[in-house]
Structure formats: structure tokens, C-alpha cells
């Protein structure tokens, strides 16, 4: 299976393991993640304001390139996924926005709304199938209690993203179970870690993240798993002592990739 891949800037630097474990796992699962030739940073956040156009152009260019290649556009980072998908949705549903965007793009960059944006979790669930992944597990995550942390970016706004039930998601839990691990039930899994507010009010970010990690700890989790580098950073800084890992790290490990080399 060939798909276009949008790694995002953080995965090239601070979240290298999120990226490399995704690539290793994809290889084992027979998915060819073909990195776009000329992707640019998504900007990290989708600005809902109708008059923000320039900030969304980098996403549209990525969507356009994927469209030319005729393959779905896959991201592993929650933020990139969220921005790409919301931009795609705005382009498809808001003609005024679409026409403004077209004025910025070079003629050969034109986008026609034909790209399917997918998070790797979605690809694994819907196109590969967790039952098929389970068959390829060589190091099952036995005896590990894992708290799947979704945060905001994977789930909301649900009517645009449609990745999972925004209040009772299950995709990461299903993955954990497919990998032989135990997923704990906890209620803060879809609440915000504080995100970018870290640079405005580090105390607020810490308070939020501590609330999340202590809820995971109270639920008996040994670790928290996430798809977002910023969530991971905030949760690590909160200092609850609970380790945070990327879902691709668990996946790669369970599939028998040489993760420690990464």
C-alpha cells in the first residue's frame, strides 16, 4: 500500500522517535510511507477565523501535492493531522475561502479537494485492520497497563475530523489490545494538556498536564501513550513520574522492529 506522508517539523527534530518508529512499523506492515517532496510546516494550529488564509496555504500545498500523486495524505502527528484535515474541510465547504486560497497558489499548485487526509491510527484501523496487525505482533505488550491519551487534536472538532467518538474514543485502546497490552479506562483522556499555553502560562500547562497524568495514574496505568509531541512534552514536564511514549514506539516494539537502534 502506497500513501503520501506528511511528517511535520517536530518529527524531524524533537520527535524523531515518533517518525522513525512509524516508518519502521509501516515497513513491517507493508505500507510505503512516501514523504512529500516539498512539505512545509502546517503551523501547528488551525485558526478558525474565516479571514485567515495565508496561514493555511502550506497545508493546501501539501494537500495539492498529495492530490497530484493520487494517494491519501497520512500524518502521524496529531497537530499536523488536525490542521491538514480542518484546512481540507474548510476548502471543501467554504467556497469563499477556497477562492481566496486559489489566488495565492501558483497555477501548477492548484488543489481540487481530492485528497483524503488520514491519521496513521485511522490507516491502521480502517485500511490495514487491527486484526491483521495482531497477527504480526512478535513482542506482545504483556502485563503493561497503558493509558491511551487522545487530547484535543485527534478528536475535535469531531464533525470535521470524524476519526473517533469525541467523548468515548477507542482507536488507541483497540491498537493497544491488538498489540497484546492492557488499556485502562480513564476519563481525562480527551481533555487538553495545555498545549501552546505553555509559552504564555507555564503554570496553567503544568496544572492541566498534572491533572491528566494523575488521572491516568489513579486508573492504574503504567504509562501514557500519545500521538502528539507537545502533549508528550507537557505531560513529561508535569512531573507525575508516569512515562509518556508515542503510539508508534509501542507499535514498532510489538512488531519486532529494532527500536533501540532508532
Amino acid at each position: 500500500m502506497y500513501v503520501s506522508y506528511f511528517p511535520g517539523c517536530t518529527l524531524k527534530t524533537k520527535a524523531v522517535r515518533l517518525d522513525r518508529c512509524a516508518r519502521k512499523s509501516a515497513e513491517i506492515l507493508g505500507i510505503e510511507l512516501q514523504e512529500l517532496d516539498s512539505w512545509q510546516c502546517c503551523g501547528g494550529a488551525f485558526t478558525s477565523a474565516a479571514d485567515e488564509v495565508a496561514t493555511k496555504l502550506s497545508s493546501v500545498r501539501a494537500l495539492a501535492e498529495a492530490e497530484r500523486l493520487g494517494r491519501p495524505l497520512v500524518s502521524v502527528c496529531s497537530a499536523c493531522y488536525n490542521v491538514l484535515k480542518q484546512t481540507d474541510h474548510a476548502f471543501k465547504t467554504d467556497p469563499e475561502f477556497a477562492s481566496k486560497v486559489r489566488r495565492y497558489l501558483a497555477p501548477d499548485e492548484c488543489y481540487n479537494g481530492g485528497t483524503e487526509v488520514l491519521h496513521l491510527l485511522e490507516l491502521l484501523r480502517d485500511k490495514v485492520g487491527f486484526e491483521n496487525i495482531a497477527k504480526k505482533v512478535v513482542n506482545p505488550l504483556k502485563g503493561v497497563k497503558i493509558a491511551a491519551y487522545y487530547g484535543c487534536m485527534l478528536l475535535r472538532p469531531s464533525d470535521v475530523l470524524g476519526l473517533d467518538d469525541p467523548e468515548n474514543p477507542s482507536v488507541m485502546e483497540e491498537l493497544i489490545r491488538a498489540l497484546g497490552g492492557e488499556a485502562v479506562g480513564w476519563s481525562q483522556r480527551n481533555e487538553c494538556c495545555g498545549g501552546y499555553v505553555l509559552l504564555e502560562s507555564p503554570e496553567l500547562a503544568k496544572k492541566r498536564s498534572l491533572e491528566i497524568s494523575s488521572d491516568a495514574a489513579a486508573a492504574g496505568a503504567d504509562m501514557i501513550v500519545t500521538a502528539c509531541p507537545l502533549c508528550r512534552y507537557n505531560l513529561d514536564k508535569a512531573g507525575s513520574g508516569l512515562p509518556t511514549v508515542y503510539f508508534t514506539e509501542l507499535l514498532a516494539k510489538a512488531l519486532g522492529a529494532e527500536v533501540d537502534e532508532i
Partner: peptide, 10 residues
């Protein structure tokens, strides 16, 4: 939001 935590519902 209602968060079940242990015996209580927050």
C-alpha cells in the same frame, strides 16, 4: 463533564 475516578464521580 463527569469523570468516574475510583468510587466517586467527579
Amino acid at each position: 463533564k463527569i469523570s468516574p475516578q475510583g468510587e466517586v464521580l467527579k
